[in-house]
């Protein structure tokens, strides 16, 4: 199945590989429902979380996933590290490897950092978000959540609404959803649509009312506050008026459509509060599934022979 020691992006995976990860994650989801939520599968291995960007949920999720597999986990965050003393990325990574890390989970503001580290390190590198490029484990947990509600992904109308251009979550989802046979629709203001979007594989809408029609899955993306006032859209209020996921707009989707969000949520910006908490919302389930999916990724990568 897996041919490489690393998980750098969904772009590099086949549909079969994605499905194998999801099937393995189902097994781990069962483990997480038990009294003893821990298995000895990766006993003696070491996972280092190397985060150059602030993150609570992804880092915590990786940490807990690693602990549930009986590994030892070390968190290495930039503010407390020698990076602030001028150490290069390569030297930091090599010294982490010299400590005996088997996995390096890396998040960095620059796209391609995990790819660079994968060539430098013998350890397995897992991309936990690199710039605006990819966030593969978030997409995998999204696929897992969709599959557990809809039974399949092929043929579903999956709508992604929000800041597509700056979203690594959207990129990873688009790569994977197309491979898995979903009809992908992107909704956002023209200013937030990436230039490189291939319109042969996805449908692009500038109106949420048009794009959301008959959707099986509606995924809202976080509008990063720092984008405000940079010419992408006039104000957060206007964004909500035109693109916010409200109950009224959600009624245009299928009745059993699920509402997803990678978190953290800005209530009243990209999603209305009552929708985020509503009966169709699976936001918290996504968080739980993230644990199972990350366990599956760590577990499967450790079985890879180079």
């Amino acid at each position: 199945m897996f041919k490489t020691k690393d998980l750098l992006g969904i772009k590099d995976l086949t549909a079969d590989e994605i499905n194998h990860i999801l099937d393995t994650a189902s097994g781990f989801k069962d483990v997480l429902a038990r009294d003893i939520k821990k298995v000895p599968a990766l006993r003696g291995k070491t996972v280092v979380n190397l985060f150059f960007e602030p993150s609570t949920r992804t880092r915590t999720s990786f940490e807990l996933a690693a602990k549930r597999l009986s590994t030892d986990v070390v968190n290495f965050s930039v503010t407390t590290s020698s990076i602030t003393k001028g150490e290069t990325l390569r030297d930091t990574a090599l010294s982490i490897q010299a400590l005996g890390a088997d996995f390096v989970v890396v998040r960095h503001g620059t796209a391609g950092v995990p790819h660079f580290l994968s060539g430098v390190l013998k350890a397995s590198v897992i991309n936990a978000g690199d710039g605006t490029n990819e966030h593969p484990t978030q997409a995998l947990l999204d696929f897992f959540t969709i599959r557990s509600h809809k039974g399949k992904i092929e043929g579903l109308n999956v709508v992604i609404v929000g800041d597509i251009a700056h979203s690594r979550v959207a990129k990873s989802n688009i790569y994977g959803l197309i491979k898995l046979g979903a009809n992908v629709r992107l909704i956002c203001p023209p200013t937030l649509m990436p230039a490189e979007i291939n319109k042969r594989n996805v449908e692009v809408f500038n109106s949420i009312e048009q794009g959301i029609k008959d959707a099986d899955v509606v995924m809202a993306l976080r509008i990063q506050m720092e984008r405000q006032g940079k010419g992408f859209f006039p104000s957060l209020e206007e964004y909500f008026d035109l693109y916010g996921l409200t109950g009224e707009r959600l009624r245009l989707a299928k009745d059993d459509a699920i509402v997803m969000h990678p978190g953290p949520i800005n209530r009243g910006v990209e999603i209305a509060s009552d929708v985020a908490d509503g009966r169709q919302s699976v936001v918290l389930e996504q968080v739980t599934n993230g644990l199972a999916v990350r366990m599956a990724v760590l577990y499967l990568l450790s079985g890879v022979k180079e």
């Binding site: 393995t24 499967l300 450790s302």
Partner: peptide, 10 residues
């Protein structure tokens, strides 16, 4: 896990 040829199937 480290000595088998094939990926484990759960």
């Amino acid at each position: 896990l480290y000595s088998k040829k094939d990926q484990p199937v759960v």
